[in-house]
Simulated assay, not measured.
Amino acid sequence: MGRNSDSRQRMVEAARQLIRERGYHGTALSDVVSRSAAPRGSVYYHFPEGKGQMAAEAAARHAQDQVEVINRAGDSASSAEDLVGTYFDLAREGMVGSNYQRGCAIAPLVIEASEESEGLHDASRRSFSAMVDGMAFQLIVHGVGNADARELAHAVMAGVEGAMVTSRALRSPQPFDAMRVALTDRARSLTAGARTPS
């Protein structure tokens, strides 16, 4: 049972990395098996619904990973501005460190697979919602009002996703740097009043 579970988790992680690098249509089940070193016949044992099921679980894994990143950034941040800046810095480092090869594991499901499966649409919606919720929570912890925190969380997620695409195209971190400046300024403005002595 433990071995089967380990094999399944390796396949989900391999699918996540491959989708980040190649997109949904560019990821073949044979590549997932090869990268995960899973038994060749195990794909449909673990994922009876096929590639779509595996991709949905990879998106959920990616969202869980990002929420953990957000929470760690929140734990170490001194302010909402610091939280937003740290999250952009980590995304930037990941992109540059992958030599502009690794994007998001969720976005390809929206762009490439929306016509293929309602399940993939639901998986991408749930995954992005979890990330927005996680960022909004941490912004509230750091002094941003509830409505403003949700608005800024959406902007941060959209900013990081857009920066991933343009950064890969330009092979430059400049899109991350530009969005960082704009959204840390916004975070600062939303908490300035709360820090001002009365």
Rank of each mutant, 00 (worst) to 15 (best):
P108Q: 04
A80I: 03
A60R: 10
P175E: 07
H25E: 13
R150G: 04
A123L: 02
T86L: 11
V96W: 04
L109H: 00
A147F: 14
D75C: 08
E116Q: 11
H154E: 13
Q138Y: 05
G74R: 02
R8L: 08
A155F: 06
V84W: 01
E49C: 11
E151P: 08
F176M: 09
A38V: 04
G143P: 02
M1C: 13
A37W: 09
V156C: 02
A155Q: 13
S198F: 15
R150D: 06
E116D: 11
G143A: 05
A158Q: 12
E161L: 10
M131P: 07
A73C: 09
G74P: 00
H121L: 15
E68G: 10
S198L: 15
R61W: 09
F137N: 12
V69R: 10
A38L: 04
G50P: 00
V43M: 14
V110S: 08
S167W: 07
G97K: 07
A28G: 15
S117Y: 03
Q138K: 11
Q64C: 08
F88C: 05
V43R: 01
T86R: 14
V43F: 14
S189T: 10
T191E: 04
G94M: 07
A136P: 00
S117A: 07
A123S: 03
N71C: 12
H154C: 12
F47A: 01
T86H: 10
Y24W: 08
M95N: 09
L83N: 03
A14V: 02
R72L: 10
E13P: 09
A147T: 14
R126M: 10
R8S: 07
R16A: 03
A182N: 11
G159Q: 04
A153V: 03
R8K: 13
H46V: 06
A38G: 04
A153I: 02
L83A: 05
Y44A: 00
G2L: 13
E151M: 14
L90K: 11
R40L: 12
F137V: 11
R180C: 11
A77N: 06
A56W: 04
E49Q: 15
A37C: 13
N4S: 15
R180W: 10
R35S: 12
E57D: 09
A91T: 02
V181M: 12
R3N: 12
Q101T: 14
L170A: 14
L18N: 00
A163M: 06
E151K: 15
R40M: 10
A163S: 13
P48R: 00
E49Y: 13
L183K: 01
G41S: 05
G159P: 01
A123Y: 00
P48V: 01
V144E: 01
S36T: 03
A194D: 12
S114F: 13
S129F: 11
T166W: 14
M11C: 03
R126K: 12
P175L: 07
M131Y: 05
F128A: 06
G2D: 11
V67D: 01
D89K: 10
L190M: 07
V156T: 04
V156N: 00
A149K: 04
Q138F: 03
A136R: 00
A59T: 02
V84T: 05
F128R: 07
A91V: 01
S78C: 10
T184V: 08
Q17C: 13
M157F: 14
S124K: 05
I111V: 15
R72S: 10
E21A: 11
S127A: 12
S36M: 03
L90H: 10
R168T: 11
G97V: 04
D82E: 08
V32H: 01
